[in-house]
């Protein structure tokens, strides 16, 4: 939007580096976590300056919001552990690590000047074919049409990661009820305490999160927004419910959970197979129905992403979800 650096950019960058410094080198694990959340927030502001509002949205939802909630929920069990403040003490070791990092920094910065005047041929191509893509927004067209294969595999990564988290959680508690009793207190199956602050806040926020999430999915067809941001917001609604309602909000072994987890991946699979059977290339939509295909894929991906984030959150909490 602007092509010059202003005082605002300089202030933003200084604050960003300061937050990163405290997150990386602060002594106390808790304040490092808070600075990490601030770092995510400022990163989203930097994306606005780079004219990438889609990324700013993703960073705000996922980076600052969900990662923040994950880390704040987890830091408690690590901060008092022995070694939470430990650094490598040997000066020689520190110096050599520092020298290597500086070397990497210098190399990267030099490459920056090297590539400064190059230009990519992609943006003009995108502009030319945007009409046939089924989406009026270039980033959505890129994610769900031009490079849909990447997005498919990325959803596959999410699916694998959530299955891995479930497996670790399962190994952790081989016999669900007796096993947990020794490691964590037994909690009632449905523990919604209607007077607690989390529950009051959840009741106010849930409709808002779902509404904004749904709107974000729809925005993706013509403006910044789309499946990832929407999935993160709806996922946040579910996480809120988990916090307010105890661990019973999610059942990892149910068929419903598992089929919903793989819904995004299998929708892409079906779309790819359908395109191949119809004589086209993989994930090639007919231009006339590309808009509908993109929306369908995005809706499926949104649900899967939202549930994946919930499963991941549940499995990394100090006490696990219902097995």
């Amino acid at each position: 939007m602007r092509d010059r650096i202003e005082i605002y950019d300089v202030l933003l960058v200084v604050t960003l580096i300061g937050a990163a410094w405290r997150a990386l080198f602060g002594k106390d694990a808790f304040s490092a976590t808070v600075f990490f959340i601030v770092y995510g927030l400022l990163m989203a502001m930097a994306w606005v300056q780079l004219d990438a509002i889609d990324v700013a949205l993703a960073e705000a939802c996922v980076g600052a919001g969900l990662t923040g909630a994950l880390l704040i929920g987890a830091v408690r069990q690590f901060e008092r552990a022995p070694g939470a403040r430990a650094l490598r003490r040997t000066m020689g070791l520190r110096a050599s690590i520092g020298a290597l990092s500086l070397l990497a920094l210098a190399g990267l910065t030099a490459s920056l000047f090297e590539i400064e005047n190059r230009r990519s041929p992609v943006p003009p191509l995108v502009e030319r074919s945007l009409g046939d893509s089924g989406s009026a927004h270039p980033v959505t067209a890129m994610l769900l049409n031009f490079r849909a294969f990447d997005t498919w595999l990325e959803i596959g990564v999410l699916l694998i990661a959530s299955l891995a988290a479930i497996s670790i959680h399962r190994l952790y508690d081989p016999s669900p009820i007796e096993g947990r009793a020794s490691t964590a207190p037994t909690r009632p199956r449905l523990q919604i305490q209607s007077q607690t602050q989390p529950w009051i806040m959840a009741r106010t926020l849930l409709p808002l999160l779902i509404l904004v999430g749904g709107a974000m999915l729809w925005f993706g067809s013509h403006a910044p927004g789309g499946a990832f941001q929407s999935g993160a917001l709806i996922g946040a609604a579910g996480i809120l419910l988990q916090i307010a309602g105890g661990r019973s909000a999610l059942r990892l072994s149910s068929l419903r959970t598992r089929s919903l987890l793989s819904l995004g991946f299998s929708s892409f699979w079906l779309m790819a197979a359908g395109a191949l059977l119809a004589g086209g290339r993989i994930l090639e939509y007919p231009p006339a129905s590309a808009g509908a295909a993109i929306l369908a894929l995005e809706a499926a991906a949104t649900l899967s992403i939202a549930l994946t984030l919930n499963v991941m959150y549940a499995c990394s909490r100090p006490w696990g979800p219902e097995p």
């Binding site: 990438a52 993703a58 990519s120 890129m142 994610l143 490079r147 997005t151 990325e154």
Partner: peptide, 11 residues
């Protein structure tokens, strides 16, 4: 901005 790196970063 170029949508290709943006899409990469979002994923």
């Amino acid at each position: 901005s170029d949508p290709l790196p943006q899409a990469l970063v979002i994923t």
